[in-house]
Every structure is written in C-alpha cells, then in structure tokens.
Design a protein around this nucleic acid. Sequence first.
DNA 1: CTGAAAGCGCTAACAT
DNA 2: ATGTTAGCGCTTTCAG
Lengths: 323, 323
Amino acid sequence: MVDVAREAGVALRTVSRVVNGDATVGDQLAERIRRAIDHLGYQPDERARQLRSGRTGTIGAAVRHIADAHPVLRAIDESARGVGLTVVAMSTEDDEERERDAVMSMCRRRMDGIIIEPIADGHQYLQAEIDSGLAVVAFDRPATGVAVDTVLSDNRGGIQQAFAHLAAQGHRRIGYIGDDERIYTGRERAAAFREALSGIGEPLDGMVHPGPIEQERIAAALESLRRRAEPVTAIVTGNFNTTVALIRALGPDFGSTALVGFDDFGLADLLRPGLTVVAQGDVEIGRTAIELFRSRLAEPGGPVRTVTVPTRLIVRGTGEIGP
Amino acid sequence: MVDVAREAGVALRTVSRVVNGDATVGDQLAERIRRAIDHLGYQPDERARQLRSGRTGTIGAAVRHIADAHPVLRAIDESARGVGLTVVAMSTEDDEERERDAVMSMCRRRMDGIIIEPIADGHQYLQAEIDSGLAVVAFDRPATGVAVDTVLSDNRGGIQQAFAHLAAQGHRRIGYIGDDERIYTGRERAAAFREALSGIGEPLDGMVHPGPIEQERIAAALESLRRRAEPVTAIVTGNFNTTVALIRALGPDFGSTALVGFDDFGLADLLRPGLTVVAQGDVEIGRTAIELFRSRLAEPGGPVRTVTVPTRLIVRGTGEIGP
DNA sequence: CTGAAAGCGCTAACAT
DNA sequence: ATGTTAGCGCTTTCAG
C-alpha cells in the first residue's frame, strides 16, 4: 500500500479511500491511484484491515465434515452470500474435541459468529464467547448447557408422516431402526415412533432399534424384526446412514418389505423400487439459520429463538408396498 | 493480552511467550499467567499474530462446491492436518468469475497458498500472485496459461481399463457418453475412448457422445446408441453426473446393457445390479497435492511437477453383462 | 477534498 | 529468564 501511495504520489489515507470506494476523492486522482494498484498488483491485506476496523463480515460454519455432501451448508452459503457475508467451513467430525478446536479457531480469527451443528454434550464453553459478543446459531441439534438461537427439523412430525403413510397402506407391524438415543435426533425420532406405534395399539417390545450406525448392528436389528412370530411388514429408518446400511443388509430382499427412510438423498430415485423418504427442509433450515444469525448480530440482547422446520414425505415406491 | 499481562503482573512479551509455548519462562510465572488467561477467557487474535509473524499456516482450497461430497477435499484436509496446516475451503461453482473471487479472497487473507480445481480457461491472473510467493497446486484439471504443480488422474488409463474390461467380455459395439470436450477431463476421456474403439477396428461414427450433462442430451445419446442397425451392447460413461443421468434414462432397462461408469460413488453398490466403475485415487490425489504444496513452499523456485495418479476398476455387476 | 499521526493485537529483535 | 521497543498493513481520528 505504501508502494501504491508512492507510485501515485499521494498519502496512504487516500489510497485507503480509493480501495474502500470512498467517494470523497477527486476523479483524476482516484484514476491515477487505481492504475498504480493494477500496475503493482496490490491486494489489500484482509487481516490488517479487520484488525484495525473491527468488523470481519465472516461467519464460521462448524459442520460434521466439509467433504461430505451437505445441503444445509449449501443453503447457508448461498443465503450468506446474498447478504454480503463470507462463510468459512470447518469440520467437526462429530467429535467433541474437534468441535471445540474448530470453534476456538473461529474465535481466534475473530469471526462475527458461528453456525454450528452441535455434537452430543457440553457447550458451556461457548458461554464465555457469547458473552464477549460472538453470535451463535445451532442447527440440526440443540446446543446443550447454553441458550442460543436454534433451527431444528420437525423430527417428531417427520416420523409421524412416515408412520401414518405406512399405516394408511394397512401396515400395523411396523419396525424402527435408527441412530443412538444419546444423539438428539435419534432420541426424538425413536420417541416419536414409539408414540405412533402405541397410538395404533401395537406393543412396542422389540420393534424399536436405536443404536450405533454399524452394518452389523443394523443387520441384527433387521433379523430381529423379521424373526418375530409375526414378522414386521414395514420398516422406518431414522436417518440416511441407517437407511443405506439397511438397504445393504436387505440385499436382494430390498423391495419385499415396505420402507420409509428419514432423509432424502440424490440417488434415492435410482433404486429399484425408488425409496420413499421423509425429506428435511434443508434450504429453509439454512435460510433460517442465516436469518437468526443476522438478527442476533443486529440485536445481541434479543430473546433467544428456536425455529422448527417441517419435513416432507416424498413417495417413490418402497413406502407403497402393501403388508 | 494487555489485561492478562496486568492481571499476572508481567510484561506483554512474557504472556506471548507462554501462549506460544516458549520454554524460557519460569514455571511458577507461567502457571500464574495461564491462570490469568483462563480467568479472563483470553484467546489470542490469530489475525494480529499472522500479521506480525508473517506465517499463516493456512491453505485455501478452491473446489467446485464445499457443500458437495468431495473425497479429494477430505484427503487434502486430512493430509494437511497431519502436517499442522489448516485448510479453508471455498466454492467456485465451476464459474470462472467465482473462482477468481475465491482465489483473490484467499490472497487478501494472505494464505500460504492455494489448492485449486481449475475452471476451463485463463489462469494467467495467478501468475502475479505466484510471483509474489503464493504456492499454487492444481488438481483434477490443469491450470491454463501458468505453470503450476499439478495432480491429475490417469484419465486415459481409466478409460482404457473400462474399455478393455468390456472388450474382454466379448463386447465390440461399445458406446461412450461423457462430458463436454471443452472441459479437460471430458476431452481426455473422449479421446482415449476413440483411440480404444479404433484400436479394435470398430468405426467411430455415432459411438462417442460428449456434451453438456443434461438429462435430455444424455437420453438422446442413449437413444442414438440403441437405434443403430447394430445397437451397442455396452456403454462407458465419462463421469459421475453422466452415469447418474444415464441410469435415469435407462429406467427399467438398467441392467440390460453392460455399463462401466467413470467415478465411484458411495451408493454404487446399492444399485441392482451393482455398478461397475473406474474409481479415481482420491486419497492419493489429496495426499499428493499436499506433498507438492509443501515442496513448493519449501523451495519456491523448484521445478514445476505434474503427477498422474492411477485409476482402479471396481467390478460390481453392470460391467460383467455379456453382449 | 486531502494528509499526518496514532494505534488495532501481536511477535521479532534486542536489551537487561 | 524477563522486559522494552518497534512495527506488521491497515483504518481511524483529527488537522489542514
């Protein structure tokens, strides 16, 4: 920058004005400075600029993994761009320590705030940062031990949709395989399923299989649902990974049992039969997260809000197999 | 930091030493400073630190989209972490202007370098940054107009693998549908396919269909391959998106024609029959990119290298259908 | 409308 | 082993 000023024969401040599009610079002078900038290939140092000005215009996204397909992140990115914010994403790997690392790294970079997909437990550490002005929005799962704006899917409603759809085809013996109940979404979805099954007067025992997403565990759950005196005629899965593992476990039997999966995915329509799913409102979740984020930035002391985004049943075939 | 120094009753420099793990600080003093840090919830300002020290330890990754599944990005991230580098990813959306924006933004943040998945044309603008010390590594496609270290898949070898596999089952009338030839990988793969088909003495006319990845275009290409006097008995697709579009176009006929797709994907084994693919060496590509990056950083004037990573045929079913 | 000086939070280079 | 001073590249006062 000092080189630019010298080349154009002006003071530093004047170069700064041109770089920031300040109108109070004479036209010819501005033009001369711009030429000097181009000539020298000058790029302002974002760090120095932020350091001095205080603002960053950057929002950190702590998501499970930046290398995985992540429709909500896409929506966050697009919404943010629309309002002039830059999104920088980092991976948490669903690991508490990694999450903390990512969040701390974001704090050290003095980002305006973070959007986080929280891991299991203990987000108390966020409180200190929030107190010192960090805007925090959680999505997919609530943060624990600290009050922050949150965007959630209607997990219970989604399970009810899936269940009602199967029940409407005449199924009564419907099983559930899903994520560990230590995880918020796993807990919500399993609970909603139990409620639904009880609601039609069916006994619960052995019909609900929450647990870790491991191929063996899922295969065993499937076996247990099929080996009953009265085998299940339909299954609901609690998330994408469970659905995929179950389809693998079913092997050639895929298509013989009715199935509705939680979470939509790009290739669900390529399966034969197509997979009926409960899709989450990814775009709306992302959009809402940015909205909450901006409100929080604008009014740090405002009331903490939680928004629930509805799910949608997508009919493709597996959910329409009769009992 | 000044608060910490005051609270602990020491000079700024001493706090800095503790923060940076400098051993030349008395144990009790260090302990007292650490307590003050915890007490005040102090987090060093990464920007100021970088500004002063010159290093950043950060590498920018300009990839197609941060919200898409991207196995190479995962490998880059992991390899980088292993050597103490932080990866910050940004989206290019396969748009030249967006790519430039992303790269410029990385330069303004004074990252040590960038790893880029280049768009079609014109990377001359990178030259100025390279001259001023930016380390640049391209992957998947070469950058145009500048000499940078590059990691590529063995596109030609991959197509040869696919072709040879089908030819070994007795196929001779093999068609190709792939990406636009304006894109490097599309060009390489189509060229390799033409060479292979000519190599077994088959005429080329109407057998090779490069073009944009649009459902209608792919469906039309399929029709044209089937409507021949002697219809094709096998098809090779040029990339993931083409493969998916072709499977959609085939509909219930999927499994009646032999098929090998370029690019592996997570759900390829769930199709019935399973999809035979040519998989790229994602992990090795990522690992190599980081390696080249570090060499470049260590020796900015060293010779520019291009590394080609082999592909691998994964047999799952569609490639083993007879003529 | 333009310029000089101060300082954002930190670390490098010297003292001591 | 610890403290002092200067300055990274920029923007923000405040004078001209």
